[in-house]
Design a protein around this nucleic acid. Structure first.
Lengths: 330, 330
DNA sequence: TTGTACGCGTTATCAA
DNA sequence: TTGATAACGCGTACAA
């Protein structure tokens, strides 16, 4: 196949070590020999075999990215950021879709470690499991993106969901709403909990009692929004505003509201969460909370490189602010 | 760090080759020794160092995926398919974003080859460049997904854009439209050309003369749709139907149409292309042509594994059908 | 059935 | 400034 160091060494009649030194710009090579070597490198388009390099150095120039699903717009943007910055550092990214399944997560981790991957980013939601904690205890470079772990101090970058939800709810309160419903994600999900917390806190600031009947836990789907709204209609406390815990839920809510013949925002106001493309396409355009996904990915991978390079990670847990984007639905 | 074969060999007092044979289930190991070895493997959670394995075998268990942008919904779905199937075969995928830039493409290819990546999938649009052709001439496993190359027979999977566009245009013709505009992607783009070709052919089937004034070439953005429609309004031939070459363009078109006070589909009908999520969210829901992206990715990677395993690739160039999805905008 | 010896392509440690 | 040699961890042809 391609030429190796040995080939070049033989051609000139020097040793492989000399060739290695010349190529890697290390001191201790005569100017003339170095020139000769580099000329042949050019001529035969020598490409170092990274597998061999990696084996010798006991490390590789790849990082692993574990996330639920790359085909979700939400994650793919962060993935893009990670790949951009990794590429600048000469690293490539191995993307592993876990669908949130712990078994697959574990398998991927084994694979990545067996391949001596330089480090791993966990991008996802909710709490991380024990396996990750154990990884964190061994001194393997790990960064958590939008995930948290309780017991161990693993460098993390998270988006402040509570404050985002707080801002969205305050926005509705300022508009004069008093019966604000929350259609949320699963109850055991960390994001759901944070968004609920922000919601509660906002109500509290306005001295409005928290009413559990106005909070519905479902999954993150469009159907949840649709069904959730119908449930609220059936209750005795029909809300004047709905805070949907993500845009997809909001889309379902809007569909149900329209189906019921109500006007948005006149009869019922709606706020979403995430700022995906649908928010600007749907009628009326959806007020939502934007998540800095690119920044999330970028800052995570920067932290990871700090770890890989044995540098100090300044901000162990970094919290990114989300931002309210007001459109026509409120 | 982890235990190696050498460690296990020493513990029992056998040679490394015996351990290797036992672990890889190769014949020629006594049942008792094998059991002893496997017990230690279990006990110390031995993980083979893949870097070493790869170096010894001169190949790696990774494949490369070159695409324009992973954060595009269009590509990320195919990427997901590729990763799913690769994972089943024990391979991982390295995702490389090129943004269509040939220099970056070339750099990635070098990197992938230096790392002895088992094969590469080129996912994208348009024609591939010479570098790729050269790669194809060397017997490196390569598959093209939604790309074509003229001179060399590289296994490829493409989506039949021409027929998709043909069907979409026929659909409009059947609805009685005679002045159908096409707002297309860039003129030098292969997909654009195919979609134009299908459009022309449909007109031809209905004995309608092709009118270049009704065809506008722009980029694939929402703004293109908006501006494109305004240009058509200014012309002397205002169309009764618009075929937008992708959904994003269609969104812009619909916005412009609404802004102009026209009714969809009463005054003007609209068809999109791709079937992204916006089609079901926008009002009115958009008739569009769905692209089997998951299948595109899946079949591409299957072909790649055939190449990697030195098997015969049955269908050198596979063409996937796209499908018209009729909604409310026509 | 088992062990020896070498190769994979590179880096790194000593001597020379 | 150089070169010989070992090491990285594993696979494998050959010999025992």
């Amino acid at each position: 196949m391609g030429v190796t160091m040995k080939d070049i060494a033989r051609m000139i009649g020097v040793s492989e070590s000399t060739v290695s030194r010349a190529i890697n710009n290390k001191p201790g090579v005569g100017a003339k020999t170095k020139k000769k070597i580099l000329r042949l490198v050019e001529k035969y388009n020598y490409q170092p075999n990274q597998l061999a390099q990696n084996l010798a150095k006991q490390e590789s120039n790849m990082i692993g990215l574990l996330l639920p699903d790359i085909s979700s717009l939400f994650y793919s943007e962060a993935a893009r950021a990670i790949q951009d910055i990794a590429a600048k550092e000469g690293y490539q990214v191995i993307v592993c879709n876990t669908d949130g399944d712990e078994d697959r997560e574990k398998n991927y981790i084994d694979w990545l470690q067996a391949n001596k991957i330089a480090g791993i980013i966990f991008l996802g939601y909710g709490l991380a499991n024990n396996k990750i904690i154990n990884l964190g205890l061994s001194n393997y470079p790990i960064v958590l993106a939008n995930r948290l772990v309780e017991e161990v101090m693993i460098p993390s970058v998270v988006i402040d969901n509570a404050t985002g939800a707080f801002g969205a709810t305050i926005h509705l309160l300022e508009k004069g709403h008093k019966r604000i419903a929350l259609i949320n994600g699963p109850q055991d999900n960390l994001q759901s909990q944070n968004r609920l917390q922000g919601y509660k806190q906002a109500l509290n600031n306005y001295n409005i009692d928290y009413n559990p009947k106005l909070v519905i836990h479902k999954d993150w789907s469009r159907e949840s929004g649709y069904e959730g709204f119908l449930e609220l209609l059936d209750s005795d406390e029909v809300p004047t505003a709905i805070f949907a815990a993500n845009d997809l839920i909001a889309v379902g809510v809007i569909e149900a509201i329209k189906m019921g013949g109500y006007m948005i925002p006149h009869d019922i106001a709606v706020v979403g969460f995430e700022d995906t493309i649908v928010t600007s396409v749907i009628e009326p355009a959806l007020t939502t909370v934007s998540q800095p996904m690119y920044e999330l990915g970028a800052n995570s991978v920067r932290k990871l490189f700090s770890l890989i390079n044995k540098e100090e990670v300044e901000e162990k847990i970094e919290i990114l602010a989300s931002k309210l984007i007001v459109r026509k639905s409120t």
